[in-house]
Amino acid sequence: MATMILVRHGRTTANASGTLAGRLPGVRLDERGLEQAQKAGERISPVPLALAVTSPMERCQQTLSVILDGRSELPAVVVEDGVAECDYGEWQGEKITTLARRKLWKTVQAQPSAVTFPGGESMPAMQARAVEAVRRHDAAVTAAHGDAAVWLCVSHGDLIKSILADALGMHLDLFQRLHVDPASISVVRYGDGRPTVLATNTNAGDLSWLAPQKGRKGSKKRNDAILGGGAGPTDAVSD
């Protein structure tokens, strides 16, 4: 199967002020967020992209625009409702410090699978739609471009955490153990037998090892776990 690069949007004015933005319109990257998105773009730039998928939220589309800026070959771009921000309902627009005093906050921390946000969606529903969306796009990219293809998805912190939890085989109630920084990069490969998580919440480092090797574009990636750990990412990409 193809390889998916997951990027959280860069820092926003709402993040900086401690506000839960949710699906509120007009939430854009601040100066720091633009710098973070540019750095993510530099890290991803050596990797040819078969597709770019983004949440419809403005901050994600802005992040994607910065990431793709300057590329000689641009991938097709799809705006995907399945990876939109969680519908926090009445909570959106509230200060995190205010929300942390509410009874439901403790359930969000300890038992997310039991949470439905007032006037919004449940966290299991959020995870289900996100996982369905990325697995659907991954299968389509693989069918169209082969197992060595790489594609990009720009989404939100809780969405990416829920996708990673699914790939790791973690119950949703454990997903708060994961952390996803603004503009951080995580990498997942969905195999025939199981997903493989290649990276989580990275903020630096060369990603050129994800690029298909010349002459091996359509090669089949081995999904077996290598006893002893193997020889590193070059083997994982070219095998």
Rank of each mutant, 00 (worst) to 15 (best):
V27Y: 02
R28T: 13
L29A: 01
D30Y: 09
E31Y: 14
R32V: 15
L34I: 15
L34R: 15
E35I: 11
A37S: 14
K39R: 14
E42D: 02
R43Y: 00
I44E: 00
I44S: 06
S45N: 03
P48M: 06
L49H: 08
L49R: 00
A50C: 06
L51M: 14
V53I: 13
S55P: 09
S55A: 10
P56I: 15
R59Q: 04
C60M: 00
T63K: 12
T63I: 12
L64Q: 07
L64K: 06
S65Y: 04
S65L: 03
V66Y: 00
L68H: 09
D69E: 13
G70R: 09
E73M: 06
E73L: 00
V79F: 00
E80M: 12
E80R: 09
V83R: 09
V83C: 09
E85H: 04
E85K: 02
E85N: 01
Y88K: 06
Y88H: 05
G89W: 12
E94L: 07
K95W: 04
K95E: 14
K95G: 14
T97V: 13
T98N: 13
A100R: 09
A100M: 15
A100T: 13
A100H: 13
R102H: 12
K103Y: 11
L104F: 12
W105L: 01
K106V: 10
K106Y: 07
T107A: 07
V108H: 10
V108N: 01
V108D: 03
Q111W: 12
P112S: 07
P112Y: 10
A114F: 14
F117M: 08
G119M: 02
G120D: 13
G120T: 13
M123T: 11
Q127D: 09
Q127P: 06
R129F: 11
V131Y: 03
A133P: 01
V134N: 02
R135M: 14
R136M: 06
D138A: 10
A139E: 09
T142G: 05
A143I: 04
A144E: 08
G146S: 07
G146W: 12
D147N: 09
A149M: 02
A149R: 02
C153F: 05
V154E: 01
G157V: 09
G157S: 12
G157P: 11
D158H: 10
L159A: 13
L159S: 12
L159V: 14
L159P: 03
I160G: 11
I160N: 10
K161F: 02
S162V: 06
I163M: 15
I163S: 06
L164K: 09
A165S: 04
D166S: 10
A167Y: 03
A167R: 05
A167K: 01
L168P: 00
G169E: 04
G169R: 05
M170T: 03
H171Q: 03
H171N: 11
D173F: 11
